[in-house]
Design a protein around this nucleic acid. Structure first.
Length: 226
DNA sequence: GCGACAG
DNA sequence: ATCTTGTCGC
């Protein structure tokens, strides 16, 4: 496919690339059996203008931590809503490369196909790595949905242009919902199920919460010796 | 033109 | 994303 690894792009070129890459996203049920689940998150170091990419892996289905990897890198692309992946995918690819045992499925902190051009961070990253990826965002980027029941476990479709692109999911009683959408080699139901399986005591699924914790911890490490 | 807008 | 204390509610 066209320039899967093109990162030095103008916003206009990035949008065109998204339209091209979106045609290669495959929606299908996640594999029923696999061994390693990965979780990816990014932290921002304002003073040095750097990103901290963290990737953790866990055993499936018991979610015991296997290993962690991270990379600190300069920011090569600004944050523009809809173009997040061009900022975060490069460092995440490097963090992935540093793992001894790469994950079979990846959970990402951001949207999958619940994106204006059907190519959110999880889709882009999944395509680059050639593995199943699921998007789990804390905020809505696009799409509309009905009101959501108050209780943990309830969900409602996220609809974009007449199409269901994800689920708005209540991970704990009364908390703000999370936005689940398939990234690549995943579908709506299996994406929702895998996230549901990863729920712990907090709003954010445990693997992603731990990835965020590591990124945050590393970020402080960079800021403190100053 | 106005409002919305992942991290 | 990150800056930040107390505070309301389950």
């Amino acid at each position: 496919m066209t320039c899967l690894h093109a990162w030095d792009l103008s916003p206009k070129e990035a949008i065109e690339l998204q339209r091209e890459l979106a045609q290669h996203v495959q929606l299908k049920p996640l594999p029923e059996h696999f061994e390693v689940l990965g979780a990816a998150d990014i932290g921002y170091v304002a003073r040095t203008n750097q990103l901290v990419a963290a990737m953790l892996t866990f055993t499936w289905p018991d979610l015991q931590l296997i290993e962690t990897s991270h990379v600190v890198s300069p920011i090569l692309f600004p944050y523009i809503p809809g173009l997040l992946s061009f900022r975060e995918v490069p460092p995440l690819l490097e963090a992935h490369r540093r793992l001894k045992r790469p994950p079979d499925i990846l959970l990402c902190d951001g949207q999958g196909i619940a994106h204006p051009r059907k190519l959110g961070l999880a889709s882009h990253l999944g395509l680059c790595l050639g593995i199943p990826a699921v998007g789990c965002a804390k905020k809505r980027l696009c799409g509309e949905h009905a009101s959501l029941d108050f209780h943990r476990g309830s969900y409602t479709p996220l609809i974009l242009r007449e199409e269901v692109v994800g689920y708005v999911f209540r991970s704990r009683d009364g908390v703000k919902p999370i936005y689940i959408s398939p990234g690549h080699l995943a579908d709506l139901e299996s994406s929702r199920e895998i996230v549901q399986h990863c729920l712990g005591r907090y709003r954010i699924p445990e693997p992603l919460r731990q990835a965020h914790n590591l990124a945050t911890q590393l970020r402080r490490q960079i800021l403190s010796p100053t």
